[in-house]
């Protein structure tokens, strides 16, 4: 597998040109090539959703996308959604409502939740539960995750939510993270 191809990705607002094996999964490009380790891997059958990112504004499982398929695409990862200093409302709501325990499913859950709210700003509990069907959590029993997303929706209806695109601060810290390179 020595043949390599060039891929251009825009990740959290930063341009990258990568030289990759054609079979490289997007999740490994993000984690191993760009050092963005916030996107996790929890399965090998596209069931768990720990690897969820936004590809051109829509949530995808990055273990199911080849890096080459994302050529010229805009990718937002958890690092770019918000930073500790400037949380996205879904991140804030996960903190407030204890929507995470071990935190491993959390980046994927938050990305899935943000995607849902971008499409449906006023979901019912059942709609939230169905939207999360592809994201598994073993710790929380989903109770507080659902609560967090419903609460973020409420925040959004009060006008405080922004599109799941990188905020200025998010972009900076994502750059920083990317600069730290492999294994950040």
């Amino acid at each position: 597998m020595s043949q390599r191809v060039s891929v251009r990705l825009r990740v959290n607002g930063v341009e990258h040109e990568l030289d990759v094996e054609p079979r490289l999964l997007l999740v490994h490009a993000l984690r191993d090539e760009l050092g963005l380790t916030g996107t996790h891997v929890g399965c090998d059958t596209s069931n768990c959703g720990a690897c969820t990112v936004h590809l051109d504004g829509r949530a995808v499982k990055s273990c199911t996308v080849l890096a080459v398929q994302a050529d010229e695409a805009e990718v937002t990862t958890i690092e770019g959604l918000g930073s500790p200093e400037d949380l996205h409302p879904v991140q804030e709501a996960f903190w407030e409502h204890h929507g995470l325990q071990c935190g491993y499913c959390t980046p994927g859950m938050i990305m899935a939740g943000a995607d849902l709210l971008a499409r449906n700003p006023d979901p019912s509990e059942q709609e939230v539960r169905h939207a999360l069907e592809g994201n598994l959590c073993r710790c929380t029993g989903y109770h507080n995750i659902v609560k967090a997303i419903l609460s973020a929706a409420e925040t959004g209806r009060r006008g405080a939510i922004h599109e799941p695109a990188p905020s200025a601060v998010g972009r900076e810290s994502a750059e920083e993270l990317a600069e730290q390179g492999l294994g950040a």
Partner: peptide, 22 residues
């Protein structure tokens, strides 16, 4: 009280074993 643990974990700054490289 909301958790001290959470800020890194909700922003992708956690450090799980596979996030470590040498």
């Amino acid at each position: 009280l909301r958790r001290k643990e959470d800020p890194p974990l909700i922003t992708g700054r956690g450090r799980y074993t596979d996030d470590h490289s040498l």
